[in-house]
């Protein structure tokens, strides 16, 4: 187990270099710099670039960045008057994380029961209904779902605020009412995927011999379903949590654009177009780290659920 954890962490090293390397090269290959505006005189731009070390060769800049990043210093933002990148990204990350957790919670809350009900009523209307809604769920993308929900609940019914974000310090009601629509938009597609996965896995388990044995020895249907079937059926669902978290991460990038939420994803798109190199680099590193980390957590969880896997990993 420890070996697995160490190996996974070592895996982050090549990933880190490749991911940051590609990003750094691409960003610096883009024409135009962070200080190019119509108003700034060229001499001024040159001096600014000198001040931030942008006039050096790209590889040198990369090494300097690496050295600083190793000390968790991601440098100043080039667009926001030299304030440190971390000062923007940490609050942004906190917002994105809350959004992501709510979305995942919603996805599991809807997806798991729907999948279980569908599998237990296989072939009947509950099953067909759930399957149909699930396909609908993966087919209505966030850029459609978001505006639709916003139009219905915010503009027509006026129940919820249109967009933007309220922190917990503004009170629990504003907080929740701002987070509901984006979280549902983000979670809807994921809940559909979870529902399909749960249904498939539960159906497979229900066909196993030991389920028949459990029924044969006279256990109650409820006991068999919950104690024997569900437990095993959830293994693939847990494995899916890794890709799910990655999907939430990139999905929040979309949803933050739609609902004007000050999360990390919103900074990312705007900082690419404004050539804010340190900001882009920091966001990409955080994303890559989260993905590697979540996969590690899923592997460890997997070992707990199914100790036989120890040899496989």
């Amino acid at each position: 187990m420890l070996r697995l954890i160490i190996r996974r962490f070592l895996w982050f090293i090549p990933v880190f270099f490749v991911v940051t390397g590609i990003t750094f090269l691409t960003m610096h290959a883009l024409p135009g710099g962070p200080f190019d505006t119509d108003k700034t005189p060229p001499a001024m731009v040159q001096r600014m670039e000198q001040a931030f070390g942008l006039n050096r060769p790209v590889y040198e800049q990369y090494f300097i960045w690496l050295k600083n990043a190793a000390q968790l210093d991601f440098g100043p933002s080039l667009k926001q008057r030299g304030r440190p990148v971390a000062g923007f990204l940490l609050p942004g990350l906190a917002v994105s994380a809350q959004l992501g957790l709510f979305a995942m919670g919603f996805a599991l809350l809807i997806g798991l029961p729907a999948g279980i009900i569908a599998a237990l009523h296989r072939g009947r209307w509950q099953d067909r209904g759930a399957t149909f809604v699930a396909i609908l769920g993966v087919s209505v993308p966030p850029i459609v779902m978001g505006p639709l929900l916003m139009w219905l609940f915010a503009l027509q019914l006026g129940w919820l605020p249109v967009a933007q974000w309220a922190g917990l310090d503004e009170g629990i009601i504003p907080y929740l009412s701002h987070i509901i629509l984006p979280a549902v938009t983000l979670g809807a597609g994921l809940s559909a995927i979870i529902a399909r996965l749960t249904r498939a896995s539960l159906l497979q388990v229900l066909g196993e011999d030991y389920i028949r044995t459990a029924h044969a020895k006279g256990l109650a249907r409820r006991t068999v379903t919950i104690r024997h079937a569900l437990r095993n059926a959830l293994i693939p669902v847990v494995t899916y949590l890794g890709p799910l978290a990655a999907a939430v991460l990139t999905g929040s990038l979309v949803v933050e654009q739609i609902f004007a939420i000050p999360g990390m994803g919103r900074y990312f798109v705007s900082s690419i177009t404004s050539r804010d190199y340190p900001m882009v680099m920091a966001v990409v590193v955080i994303y890559a780290f989260i993905i590697v980390f979540v996969n590690l957590v899923v592997d460890v969880l997997y070992l707990f659920i199914d100790p036989r896997m120890d040899h496989g990993l």
Binding site: I22, T250, L253, F268, I272, A288, I291
Partner: peptide, 11 residues
């Protein structure tokens, strides 16, 4: 390991 959407946006 590179988040797909981010790579696509960057490209």
């Amino acid at each position: 390991a590179y988040p797909t959407l981010i790579l696509i946006i960057l490209l």
